[in-house]
Simulated assay, not measured.
Amino acid sequence: MMKLLVRNLARNTTEAELRNLFEAHGIVTACDLVLDQQTGKSKGFGFVEMPHPSDAKAAIKRLNGTDVAGSRIRVKLDESTSA
């Protein structure tokens, strides 16, 4: 299991759009967009969990630095958790 940190998302990107983006590269077991508790709006980052390290690494390689809804996203391994 690998947990990925996705940063610099457009504020209007939905959790479903984020999941779809990563499902093109493999199975996604969890997808969480971080929301502001007061406004309920996206904070511009989220986490994606993928069970197969090879799929997760491919997603990082292909998606890091790509333009999504006008924002150049950054994708990397979430180092705050030991997978």
Rank of each mutant, 00 (worst) to 15 (best):
S80G: 02
G65P: 07
F22R: 05
S54Q: 15
L18T: 05
M2A: 12
N20G: 14
Q37P: 14
M50V: 09
S71K: 13
A59C: 03
F47W: 00
L33T: 09
V34T: 07
K76G: 13
D78A: 03
A10P: 14
V48D: 11
L21N: 03
F22S: 10
G44T: 07
F45P: 07
T66V: 15
V6T: 08
E79C: 06
L35N: 00
V6G: 08
K57C: 01
N8R: 11
T39Q: 07
K43V: 12
F47Q: 06
L63V: 08
M50D: 00
L77D: 04
F47G: 05
A16Q: 15
D78G: 06
A56D: 04
L63D: 04
L77K: 06
H25P: 09
V68F: 11
R62H: 10
A30V: 03
K76C: 13
T14P: 06
E23C: 05
T66F: 13
M1I: 02
S71W: 12
S71R: 15
E79Q: 03
F45M: 02
A10G: 06
A30E: 14
G46S: 05
L5A: 12
G70P: 00
F47N: 00
K43F: 04
L35F: 13
D67Y: 12
F45G: 00
V6R: 08
I27M: 13
S42A: 10
L77E: 06
S42D: 03
G44W: 13
G44H: 10
G26I: 00
L21A: 01
A59E: 02
R7K: 14
R19Y: 11
D78K: 04
M50Q: 01
F47A: 03
I27L: 15
T39E: 15
G40D: 08
S80F: 12
V6E: 01
R19W: 12
L35W: 08
H52I: 11
M1G: 08
S42K: 12
K76M: 01
G70A: 05
V34N: 04
P53G: 00
K41R: 15
R11W: 14
L35S: 02
M2E: 10
N64E: 09
A59S: 03
T29I: 06
M2H: 02
I73C: 05
E23F: 11
D32K: 13
T13S: 01
T13N: 05
A56W: 07
R19Q: 15
E79I: 04
A69P: 07
L63A: 02
D32T: 13
A59Y: 10
M2S: 02
V34G: 00
N8V: 09
S82E: 04
K3L: 03
T39I: 13
K61F: 07
A16E: 15
D36Q: 05
G40M: 12
E49G: 03
D55A: 11
R19T: 10
S71F: 14
R72H: 09
L21D: 10
D55F: 00
